[in-house]
Design a protein around this nucleic acid. Structure first.
Lengths: 117, 117
DNA sequence: TTGCGATATGTCGAACTGTGCATAACCATG
DNA sequence: CATGGTTATGCACAGTTCGACATATCGCAA
């Protein structure tokens, strides 16, 4: 029996739109918070800027929440940072994610590893 | 703010192969158990027989576990049912899945719904 | 020994996703 | 007022996934 690893994925949806927020967008927000720009964030996460931009726009539109403060032009060409609400989302989702991560690991050991003897 | 729903997904992977077992294959096994054949199971789940067959073969090959007892030919043309191990997997994974489902709902209420006030 | 219905497996095409590329708009600074 | 780097956005192309087909095989029953 090969060694197994558990994986999980979390996301939020509305009645009409699937995936308005989730692990990917959460990581993106964190990267923006530490990098200072969407451009840099997408590079560190190795995601195309095109997708990163689309994902976040979708999240903001569907959640009807302003997560980002976008600035175009200027000395550095522009910048993006999190709003207060954006930071709250990162924090709350982080706790949510972390809790499920622990629960998953625990339940895996209890039910699956047990099954494998 | 639109109403949100949490979603989650669980799966198992080996070092080389992603998704050797997960929610889809678990549902498939259950359907086979109640339907008596892979063909019928794939129809009730609205999955192509081709995919269902491939998924289960992959699972058995990667887990190195015999989950199914396949029969070809005969009066009814053939049949597929779960082995003892197959039933154990269904049961164990069911508990695993159920536990995470509850944990997810709980953590969602605690962290995300709280955030939305 | 023929027929039926399920398993087994390859292949081609459609749908979906994400990347890459091309622009345009923007604006502090030199 | 020209420049550079970033946000914003459309579009075409590539990769992946899945479904629809097309066969082949199998074995009991009529």
């Amino acid at each position: 029996m090969k060694k197994l690893r558990v994986r999980f994925k979390l996301w939020l949806s509305t009645k009409n739109v699937e995936g308005v927020f989730g692990d990917g967008k959460w990581r993106l927000l964190r990267a923006i918070d530490s990098e200072g720009s969407l451009n840099a964030a997408s590079k560190t996460l190795r995601i195309s800027y095109r997708k990163a931009w689309g994902d976040l726009s979708k999240a903001e539109a569907c959640l009807n929440v302003t997560l980002l403060e976008r600035h175009r032009g200027g000395r550095m060409g522009g910048a993006t940072c999190l709003t207060k609400q954006g930071k709250e989302w990162v924090k709350a989702y982080g706790k949510f994610h972390s809790e499920i991560e622990k629960a998953t690991e625990k339940a895996y050991e209890k039910h699956i590893q047990e099954l494998l003897r």
